[in-house]
Design a protein around this nucleic acid. Sequence first.
DNA 1: GTCTATAAGCAGATAGAC
DNA 2: GTCTATCTGCTTATAGAC
Lengths: 195, 195
Amino acid sequence: MEKTNTAYETILHVASEIFYKKGLAGARMQEIADLAGINKAMLHYYFKTKEQLFNQVFEKAFFSFSSRIAEVLNSEEPLKIKISNYVDHTIDALKLNRGILIFVIYELNVNPERITELFAGKGNVDFSIFKKQVKAESKNEVNADMLFTDMVALCIYPFIAQPILKKMMNKDEIAYRDFLEERKSWIKSTLISRL
Amino acid sequence: MEKTNTAYETILHVASEIFYKKGLAGARMQEIADLAGINKAMLHYYFKTKEQLFNQVFEKAFFSFSSRIAEVLNSEEPLKIKISNYVDHTIDALKLNRGILIFVIYELNVNPERITELFAGKGNVDFSIFKKQVKAESKNEVNADMLFTDMVALCIYPFIAQPILKKMMNKDEIAYRDFLEERKSWIKSTLISRL
DNA sequence: GTCTATAAGCAGATAGAC
DNA sequence: GTCTATCTGCTTATAGAC
């Protein structure tokens, strides 16, 4: 599929891969230029500075997480359906690309002030809706903060610790993918048993 | 190698703080020297290269996690006690220093080959003991891989995502610390209900 | 828009006196 | 062990021709 991407988009794409792997300080403009098939001068023509390029990459990456969370928290679905959807979508997405997860976690902690900036922008998540719903749809007066924290934790941790868990549990690539797939129903049953 | 020097210890300590915050590529030898109260030449006298210093810092940080996990997995305690101890110790330790967590996660993913090296060394964790114990002490034929993954996930995620969770849940420093404390019993009850 | 060449500055590492 | 001065190479960024 030969879609003529603009140079701008091509750069953003390859820059993502480099920044995911090496972070802001470790990435090299030369390497990004090489991967994009242009030279450094052209790269600086499209993005004045490295930081500027980095910011574009980060915002895009962050948005891919916050939008999914916002979707779950703000939709009209019943709670159990919401949870089930979140688990499935998150695990499927991270199976395709877990590099983005480490990247966002790291940068969010290296530069936490950025969060304020990003949260002020569009697509804000409204936690109060979720809280009300938990109150209405659970029988056990579940703490919504705990439930939400668990939901995200159980889904993303196996990707964060993937290299070390694979090693510890002695699983190869295929066995680990099966493990991740199995976790979907395991997580759902854990979360729903709390309601 | 004789490493009983005070300067040696001081350097390792301040280097940790810098590397935790900025990673290998982002850290500056000058900054480490300044914080340690020496100059760059002296720094290179004690640690020939930046990588060498980094490796020492990383191994120490990694060991602080793996030793606690090994302790839990290999001890003679009943399963429920083990789990309870792990939750308490992990949350207490991370309350004091969460920077180390982000650091280890990042470097473990940036350079996963390092794991092989470290796992081959001392203090290796033996997962099979834990597996046998779960089989013996649980009534529901619980999947030990899942249980272990959940245990770690539920404890460390609130520290990984601390800045963003604080923002989302609208908690200040004190409220967040209370939340973390509350999680101890919440997590234990979640895990034990699975057994 | 695209390129070559180069400026400007920084960071890791060493030489060598004391 | 400790210091000053310096080397060397790399990296971002720009100037300017086409």
